[in-house]
Design a protein around this nucleic acid. Structure first.
Length: 488
RNA sequence: GGCCCCGUCGUCUAGCCUGGCCCAGGACACCGCCCUUUCACGGCGGCGACGCGGGUUCAAAUCCCGCCGGGGUCACCA
């Protein structure tokens, strides 16, 4: 079915950070290209200087880089179909614009935006579809001259044949029926000569030999226009594949309104790119009825547009968190620590220079290994191993107060700890349990109180391992310190 | 409103093309039990869906029709 050399592109407008929907579109393009040993192109759609910015441009590059979606051609990367920023392709567009105008495929329109808006309003009011009425479609040359003389600057409209067959076969949706009569003559260049989206998109896709246009479903309505432009210029339109939109919990298109974050924010929160990519791939695509863990490499091998769903998918952070945890758990203690380092350092947990703290952090994190869902949580999870003064949360205080024997018992435990010749988890556990039994107190109560005294929390790693890691001196100190909750 | 698209558990989905193996399978979330000093991990179990109505058929989530619902798009933005 796929005969031409596969060349696909991801074409973001640098008017904002890369959001999850865009990332998924980029991913599908990337996977499709790699699966077919094709070429993945990054094209920057910055034709609107007012809204585009360098800052967003580099932010998008950073996000794609983080996700490891390497492109073969693009700005910086280069390629023989460049330049890859539309703002640098003006000469190419001018040429085609001129060609279209010469052939009568486009005409000058002198209607002002105000007039157009007014007409649209009127049509809407009567329940009509607001379309351009073709007023300037066949202006006699003399009339055009006269209007131009008045200083009116015309924009350029594409002359759309209402009888054209613009129906296309979408790789995901199947045949999409389009009646050209429902469309109107759209603007392809502004009065200042700058070309608009539907024109440049068609030109670039043809010019860059794009074989498949894989993009969001919101572009379906643009497709017939681009097909028309493409044909008018003598090109064979690409094959299209419109992927369903990513949705918010209310099923409308995912947006910041839903609290949707930019891709880089997920990076900052400590999601792994490999987990993020895996999760994204499963939004609207599936392999079979059960497998859902895939590396990028595996995805390249098994991805296919045939298995992309038609239904929009709701972005569920809970599942992302779960999946991130799955990936985190696959790491060795060493890997986990190295990955968490960028979060531990700014939090003041470890400094590059301090070997002892590094070793402690690594070991502490290892104790929390199966609890970590995002790397951003790492500092919190190991924090109490490092702070001098720990604070008891409410439930921890309650557990301390519930210790049978109260202060005395706590002192005894502290003494027992201080007297232990080798402070290992095993030895500690043995003697603590023995003490509890001797006093007729349930071991659990003692353990809970000790946990509260040592970490200020009611949850955490295995108590004895945690204590052993903290070290005898500190454990004894914290146990004694905890006796203060009784006197109030 | 016009046009286009979509409709299986709360969510992601398998199954639909090539009717029966589906009184619908998996995963996340949730609930319970087990493991256990807590949380988590893990194990076991539970809750939970074919939008509705017709039709075709021995048989329909799967085919046909209608309805309903949701979304997208209607810019000199991309």
């Amino acid at each position: 079915m796929i005969k031409k050399a596969v060349r696909v592109r991801f074409a973001p407008a640098p008017t904002g950070h890369l959001h999850v929907g865009g990332a998924r579109t980029a991913l599908f393009n990337y996977l499709f290209a790699r699966h077919h040993k094709g070429v993945f192109i990054l094209r920057v759609e910055d034709t609107d200087p007012a809204r585009s910015s360098e800052e967003y441009y580099s932010s998008i590059i950073d996000a794609l880089t983080w996700l490891e979606l390497e492109w073969d051609e693009g700005p910086e990367a280069g390629g023989k179909y460049g330049p890859y920023r539309q703002s640098e392709r003006r000469a190419i567009y001018d040429e085609y614009l001129h060609k279209l105008k010469q052939s009568g495929g486009a005409y000058e329109c002198f209607c002002t935006p105000e007039e157009l808006e007014e007409r649209r309003e009127r049509m809407r009011a009567t329940g009509e579809a607001p379309r351009y009425n073709g007023r300037c479609a066949d202006l006699p040359p003399a009339e055009r001259e006269r209007l131009a003389q008045q200083g009116l600057k015309p924009c350029l409209r594409f002359r759309l044949d209402p009888k054209a067959d613009l129906t296309f076969d979408d790789l995901i949706r199947g045949r999409v029926e389009i009646d050209a009569a429902d469309l109107d003559d759209f603007v392809i260049a502004r009065p200042d000569g700058s070309p608009t989206y539907n024109f440049v998109c068609a030109v670039d896709d043809a010019n860059m030999a794009i074989s498949h246009v894989i993009r969001g479903e919101d572009h379906i309505s643009n497709t017939p226009r681009q097909i028309a432009v493409s044909r008018a210029l003598g090109f064979e339109p690409a094959t299209f594949a419109h992927v369903p939109l990513l949705l918010g919990p209310d099923k409308s298109r995912l947006s910041k309104r839903h609290g949707a974050k930019a891709v880089l924010e997920y990076k900052e929160e400590g999601y792994l790119p490999e987990a993020f990519v895996n999760f994204l791939a499963l939004l609207g695509w599936s392999y079979d009825d059960e497998r859902e863990l895939f590396t990028l490499k595996e995805l390249k091998k098994v991805f296919s547009l045939e298995r992309v769903a038609k239904k929009g998918a709701v972005f569920d952070v809970d599942k992302l968190r779960w999946m991130n945890g799955v990936y985190l758990r696959k790491f060795s203690a060493e890997e986990l620590f190295e990955r968490a380092r960028p979060w531990l350092e700014p939090a003041g947990i470890v400094g590059m220079e301090d070997d002892e703290r590094v070793a402690l952090a690594r070991a502490a994190l290892a104790l929390e290994h199966d609890k970590v869902k995002t790397l951003g949580e790492a500092p919190y999870l190991v924090e109490f191993f490092f702070t001098e003064e720990i604070e008891y949360d409410d439930r921890a205080t309650k557990n301390l107060l519930k210790l049978p024997g109260g202060v005395d018992m706590l002192r005894d435990v502290a003494e027992l700890c201080a007297a232990l010749p080798d402070f290992t988890a095993e030895a500690l556990e043995k003697s603590v349990r023995a003490l509890a039994e001797e006093r007729g107190v349930s071991a659990g109560k003692v353990i809970h109180a000790m946990r509260a005294a040592l970490s200020g929390r009611t949850t955490g790693p295995s108590l004895f391992e945690m204590a052993a890691l903290m070290g005898q001196e500190r454990v004894v100190k914290r146990l004694m310190k905890a006796t203060s909750v009784y006197k109030r």
